[in-house]
Measured scan of single mutants.
Amino acid sequence: LQLFIKTLTGKTFTVEMEPSDTIENLKAKIQDKEGIPPDQQRLIFAGKQLEDGRTLSDYNIQKESTLHLVL
């Protein structure tokens, strides 16, 4: 599923993930694309901070959802 990642600077980029992927996987993918170390990434969806060990489906993140990346 394609997700939109929006940064505080207003930049938006996309990543391609599976619902079974963990937040950790997502942070690694963001590191590949943007060079931001996972330990500096905080991801927010629907007002909640996402925890590394959980999956996208745990948070009911669907295709074309927008996640906010806070550094």
Score class of each variant (00 low, 15 high):
Asp39Pro: 08
Lys63Glu: 08
Ile5Asn: 00
Gln41Lys: 01
Lys48Ser: 06
Asp58Gln: 09
Thr14Ser: 15
Lys27Ala: 01
Thr12Tyr: 13
Thr7Asp: 09
Gln2Val: 14
Leu26Phe: 02
Leu26Gln: 00
Val70Ile: 15
Ala28Glu: 08
Ile23Lys: 00
Thr14Asn: 15
Ala46Gln: 08
Val70Asn: 06
Leu56Val: 10
Leu56Cys: 03
Thr14Leu: 14
Phe13His: 03
Ser57Gln: 15
Asn25Tyr: 12
Gln40Trp: 08
Ala28Arg: 15
Ala46Trp: 12
Asp32Gln: 14
Pro19Leu: 08
Leu71Met: 14
Ile36Gln: 03
Gly53Ser: 11
Glu51Ser: 08
Asp58Met: 05
Val70His: 07
Lys48Gln: 12
Arg42His: 13
Phe13Asn: 01
Ile44Phe: 11
Ile36Phe: 14
Gln41Ala: 05
Leu8Cys: 05
Thr66Gly: 03
Ile36Val: 14
Ala46Val: 10
Glu34Leu: 10
Gln2Leu: 13
Leu8Tyr: 10
Thr12Trp: 08
Ser20Val: 08
Lys33Ala: 13
Val15Glu: 01
Lys29Met: 09
Ile61Arg: 02
Val15Asp: 00
Thr66Phe: 09
Lys63Ser: 15
Leu67Glu: 02
Asp21Gln: 13
Leu69Ser: 01
Gln62Thr: 15
Phe13Leu: 07
Ala28Gly: 15
Met17Glu: 01
Leu43His: 01
Asp39His: 10
Gln41Met: 14
Arg54Ala: 07
Ile44Pro: 00
Pro19His: 15
Lys6Gln: 15
Lys11Asp: 09
Ile44Lys: 05
Lys29Ile: 13
Leu67Lys: 01
Asp58Arg: 02
Glu24Phe: 15
Gln40Ala: 13
Gln41His: 03
Leu8Val: 11
Glu24Val: 15
Leu69Val: 05
Thr22Lys: 12
Lys29Cys: 04
Lys6Cys: 05
Thr9Tyr: 11
Ala28Cys: 04
Ile23Asp: 00
Pro38Val: 12
Pro38Lys: 12
Asp32Tyr: 13
Lys48Val: 11
Leu50His: 00
Leu56Asn: 01
His68Glu: 08
Asp32Trp: 15
Pro38Asn: 12
Ser65Tyr: 12
Leu50Ile: 05
Leu67Gly: 02
Asp52His: 08
Gly10His: 08
Leu1Asp: 05
Gln40Ile: 10
Gly35Met: 06
Glu64Trp: 15
Glu16Pro: 06
Lys63Leu: 07
Gly35Leu: 05
Gly53Leu: 13
Asp39Ala: 12
Glu18Ala: 14
Thr9Gly: 12
Leu71Ala: 07
Lys11Val: 15
Ile30Asn: 00
Glu16Trp: 12
Glu18Gly: 11
Lys63Ala: 11
Ser57Leu: 12
Lys27Thr: 02
Gly53Thr: 09
Glu18Asn: 08
Asp21Gly: 09
Gln40Asn: 12
Phe45Tyr: 10
Gln40Val: 07
Ser57Trp: 11
Glu24Arg: 08
Leu3Tyr: 04
Thr66Tyr: 08
Ile30Asp: 00
Thr12Pro: 05
Tyr59Lys: 01
Lys11Ile: 12
Ile61Cys: 01
Ser57His: 07
Ser65His: 06
Leu50Arg: 00
Gly35Tyr: 04
Leu69Phe: 03
Thr14Asp: 06
Ile5Gln: 00
Ile61His: 02
Ile36Ala: 04
Gln41Phe: 09
Gln31Trp: 09
Gln40Gly: 06
Tyr59Glu: 03
Asp39Met: 14
His68Met: 12
Asp58Cys: 02
Leu43Met: 03
Gln40Leu: 15
Thr9Met: 07
Tyr59Pro: 00
Ile30Gly: 00
Leu67Ile: 12
Leu69Gln: 01
His68Lys: 05
Gln41Trp: 04
Glu24Thr: 12
Ser20Thr: 15
Pro38Thr: 15
Glu51Lys: 06
Asp52Met: 06
Asp21Asn: 08
Thr7Phe: 13
Tyr59Gly: 01
Thr14Arg: 15
Thr9Leu: 10
Ser65Val: 10
Leu56His: 01
Pro19Tyr: 10
Thr12Gly: 07
Glu34Thr: 14
Ala28Pro: 01
Met17Asp: 01
Arg42Trp: 09
Leu43Ser: 00
Lys6Arg: 15
Leu67Pro: 03
Glu34Val: 14
Met17Ala: 12
Gly47Leu: 03
Asn60Trp: 05
Ile5Tyr: 01
Asp32Met: 15
Lys11Pro: 07
Ile23Gln: 01
Asp21Thr: 06
Gln2Ala: 11
Glu24Ala: 11
Gln31Tyr: 11
Leu56Gln: 00
Gln40Glu: 10
Glu18Leu: 12
Thr66Lys: 05
Ile23Asn: 01
Phe13Gln: 02
Ile30His: 00
Gln62Asp: 10
Ile61Trp: 03
Asp58Phe: 12
Ser65Asp: 09
Ala28Met: 15
Leu3Ile: 15
Thr14Pro: 12
Leu26Met: 05
Lys27Leu: 02
Lys33Ile: 07
Lys29Pro: 00
Phe13Gly: 01
His68Cys: 05
Leu1Trp: 15
Asp32Asn: 07
Glu16Leu: 14
Lys48Gly: 08
Ala46Phe: 11
Pro38Arg: 13
Glu18Asp: 13
Leu26Cys: 02
Gly10Asp: 06
Leu1His: 11
Leu43Asp: 00
Leu67Thr: 02
Gly47Ile: 02
Gly10Leu: 05
Gln31Cys: 05
Thr12Gln: 11
Pro38Cys: 04
Ser20Leu: 13
Arg42Tyr: 13
Thr55Cys: 03
Glu16Cys: 04
Lys6Phe: 13
Met17Trp: 13
Lys63Pro: 14
Lys33Met: 14
Ala46Met: 10
Pro37Asn: 09
Phe13Lys: 01
Val70Gly: 05
Phe4Pro: 02
Asn60Met: 10
Leu50Trp: 02
Lys63Val: 09
Gly10Pro: 02
Leu50Gly: 01
Gly53Trp: 09
Val15Ala: 03
Lys29Arg: 08
Glu51Val: 11
Asp32Cys: 05
Leu67Asp: 01
Thr12Met: 09
Gln31His: 14
Leu1Asn: 05
Gln49Met: 09
Lys29Trp: 14
Gly47Tyr: 05
Pro37Phe: 06
Glu16Val: 12
Gly53Lys: 13
Gln62Asn: 15
Gln41Pro: 01
